[in-house]
Design a protein around this nucleic acid. Structure first.
Lengths: 200, 200
DNA sequence: TGAGCTATTTATAATCA
DNA sequence: TTGATTATAAATAGCTC
């Protein structure tokens, strides 16, 4: 074993400042990255909490870990909490539109709304009130887009179903007509599917 | 100074498993939370990387820290990298069925989705954001509730339609069987409506 | 590269103030 | 509660292989 005279030979205290030597920076990065994630896991297990860690190396490579809840859930929570921060200014001039849409919303309020899921949502939204306004606009916009898209898809599916149903009934009707024609027997009484009236 | 005889008096090794004692869990949470964040900061500084940490306590309280880039940037990177995973999340309500419909949605995504309603909704949203905080939250809450309710109704309607369709096909099939029996004529070849596979 | 190896530095569990 | 204190447990810097 041999070592430089100036060095305290091995393990020495390091200042918390950028490590200039590239390779030792890389080694330290790897070690400490693992250490950090292990610490995160321990915290999660010991205290029943959820921890998300996202690390971007100096070269842009991504590392992440989560424990407790899923990464997506944790980040979701974060975004909701901090969604209230930003961009309010961008929309300041559109205040007036709000009132014109108020009726629409009140109309919708009278509907029966189901349960706990909504409660949880409301919780989240209320939470958003108490924090900074950072990404709320962006986030909520995305959320609503997602919901709208879902709605659209469901409507489309509904239409397909309804049309198939209708086609099928027509077919049945025609066949019944045939049968009637052939057997001289009246066999009507099909009523259109009532759910069609739900679509609009 | 005094201590129990059985205890190694203070500092002893702990297993990584949930701490049952509530108050000591709380203390540990606080200490280790700070420790974790400090470690994150150090990693960031030493290695020129960016680190984001989000912690959710067992009571749902949020703690977060970021170093290097901003939290928003780090999370954005993460989200970009995991866009597909996150995209399929239902941020607001965690609709449980959503994943079971994922295929369907992705399939349908190729369709042309009308944007008008989205735009109008976005307008509403933006308008809402420009109003006072309280009203904003109220408004958005209602908005999302409305959307989710719509979704629910549509799903229900879908199921009714699908079930009607299925009933009708069964009926047709039986009738066809009858006809065949009566006429000794093979008349099969019905294929099930393809949209039935969409529902599930 | 990656996997150990310790001497040290750090983190922290139990405890006390 | 919120900090100190301190004996121990853990992490890890610099090194070897």
């Amino acid at each position: 074993m041999q070592w430089s005279e100036k060095e305290a030979m091995g393990r020495r205290k390091v200042e918390i400042k950028r490590i200039e030597n590239k390779s030792s920076r890389q080694v330290t990065f790897c070690k400490r990255r693992n250490g950090l994630m292990e610490k995160a896991r321990q915290l999660s297990v010991l205290c029943g909490s959820s921890v998300a860690v996202v690390i971007v190396s100096s070269t842009g490579k991504l590392y992440s870990s989560s424990s407790g809840e899923s990464m997506a859930n944790i980040l979701k929570r974060f975004e909701i909490q901090h969604a209230d921060d930003l961009k309010t200014l961008d929309f300041a001039e559109k205040t007036r539109n709000y009132l014109s849409h108020k009726d629409k919303l009140e109309e919708a309020e009278s509907d029966n709304v189901s349960v706990d899921s909504l409660i949880s949502l409301e919780e989240q939204l209320k939470a958003a009130l108490s924090v900074t306004r950072a990404r709320k606009t962006e986030f909520i916009t995305e959320l609503v887009k997602t919901l709208q898209e879902k709605e659209k898809l469901l409507r489309e599916e509904n239409q397909v179903l309804a049309s198939q149903l209708s086609k099928m009934e027509k077919k049945r009707f025609l066949e019944t007509e045939d049968e009637r024609a052939m057997s001289l027997e009246n066999n009507s009484g099909n009523k259109p599917p009532k759910t069609l009236t739900l679509l609009k």
